[in-house]
């Protein structure tokens, strides 16, 4: 019986319904359910992370042993992973916690992870330009409208815009407050109705593709 979808769908329904009702009941234990369930999620996810690591490291380990694809880089990946974990353990033993400012573990975070992350993030400056260029070439009404509004709003937010016309920042403000706001609300209303639809399909077991 456990092999079918019946029990999981039932669990989803019960857990979901309790969560919905807990929204209206501040009294214990219902009032704390949201916090508890998020807490539980992180515990479950913590365990599942081992499945993730197994998946990632397994894939790269296979690449190395079979010498396929970019197997040399797979060594970098596994070395980076092992190195970080080992340094974390050593520093925990040495300093009591790896998250100490003097720990090499923190150094790894500050001088490897942070610059890599923020540089990846900053690539967006280029990508946003190329995306804008594409919208410029698209030559259909929607893309043109998008681009023109983008240019107006961008100019309205920099000192240059004020020099072109003092009305530009005001117009930008109006675009943000009126048409932008209207569409954002419309999309938001649609999203919450859509989310309700998804939730109800899942809770009632109409949609069960996530359970094989």
């Amino acid at each position: 019986m456990l092999k079918g979808k019946g029990i999981p769908v039932f669990i989803t329904f019960i857990v979901g319904t309790i969560m919905i009702f807990s929204f209206f009941i501040p009294h214990k234990p219902f009032g704390d359910l949201e916090k508890i369930s998020l807490n539980w999620y992180s515990i479950i996810a913590g365990f599942t992370m081992l499945l993730g690591v197994d998946s990632l490291i397994g894939m790269h380990y296979r690449k190395i042993t079979r010498r396929t694809g970019n197997w040399g880089y797979s060594i970098v990946l596994i070395a980076g992973f092992t190195g970080t974990v080992v340094i974390g353990i050593i520093e925990t033993i040495r300093l009591g916690t790896a998250f100490n400012e003097a720990s090499y573990f923190t150094y790894i975070y500050n001088y490897f992870i942070v610059p890599l992350q923020s540089t990846m993030f900053s690539l967006l400056a280029f990508f946003i330009a190329s995306a804008a260029y594409r919208a410029f070439r698209a030559r259909n009404f929607d893309a043109t409208l998008l681009l023109i509004t983008a240019i107006i709003v961008m100019l309205g937010r920099v000192p240059l815009g004020e020099q072109i016309s003092p009305n530009l920042p005001k117009f930008t403000e109006w675009i943000m407050q009126v048409p932008q706001m209207a569409a954002k609300r419309g999309i938001g209303l649609g999203i919450s109705l859509g989310a309700l639809g998804v939730s109800i399909r899942i809770l009632l077991g109409i949609e069960r593709s996530y359970l094989s």
Binding site: L145, A150, R157, P179, G186
Partner: peptide, 15 residues
């Protein structure tokens, strides 16, 4: 309306 909103969000993010 949606396209104007997207354009505004786009322009808002560039800087």
């Amino acid at each position: 309306f949606i396209m104007v909103a997207f354009g505004a969000a786009f322009g808002y993010t560039i800087m």
